[in-house]
């Protein structure tokens, strides 16, 4: 009698499906995944693995972790990163040492592949959460990531 068992199986599975969607319907008030973007700009938090742009975090002493090794510049497939470097006197040892002058980042060339961040030996650069990158002039997309007068954090070696 597979005819009747077919009917009952059909009805049962349909009701199971309706129970699932019904549960979603009742919980939609609490769990809506829609972001009402321009309105919630203040509280909108992007997820951890979001690839917005490359940033170089600085600590409170205006120090970063970039040694100027240029591994990121070599890893970058499309020339997004340009490091202008110099040699300066290291205060601790008194020897001449490579240091960055300007870490230039062309956001308009970047494909967010993340190779530079993977390759960085000192974790000097990482992903930023900012996604509002529209500008009126494309020169605004070329950024210097190290802040003015910043220097390398003492003890960071690659």
């Amino acid at each position: 009698m597979s005819y009747f068992s077919n009917i009952f199986y059909g009805i049962k599975t349909l009701l199971t499906g309706m129970r699932v969607t019904g549960k979603y319907f009742l919980n939609s008030r609490k769990g809506a995944i829609t972001q009402q973007y321009p309105d919630n700009r203040g509280i909108l938090k992007m997820f951890d693995r979001f690839r917005g742009e490359v940033i170089m975090p600085h600590d409170e002493n205006n120090e970063h972790a970039c040694t100027g090794c240029q591994k990121c510049e070599i890893a970058c497939p499309n020339g997004t990163i340009e490091i202008i470097w110099d040699r300066g006197l290291d205060e601790a040892t008194g020897k001449k040492k490579k240091k960055i002058d300007q870490f230039v980042y062309h956001l308009s060339l970047c494909t967010m592949c993340g190779l530079c961040i993977d390759v960085c030996p000192t974790d000097a650069i990482e992903w930023g959460q900012n996604f509002e990158n529209s500008v009126y002039d494309r020169t605004a997309l070329t950024r210097v990531l190290n802040k003015p007068d910043s220097k390398i954090r003492p003890g960071v070696e690659d």
Binding site: Y24, F25, N27, S28, G31, T34
Partner: peptide, 10 residues
């Protein structure tokens, strides 16, 4: 609206 609520949208 109902469709949106079923799909956890607004």
């Amino acid at each position: 609206r109902v469709a949106a609520w079923f799909q956890l949208r607004i």
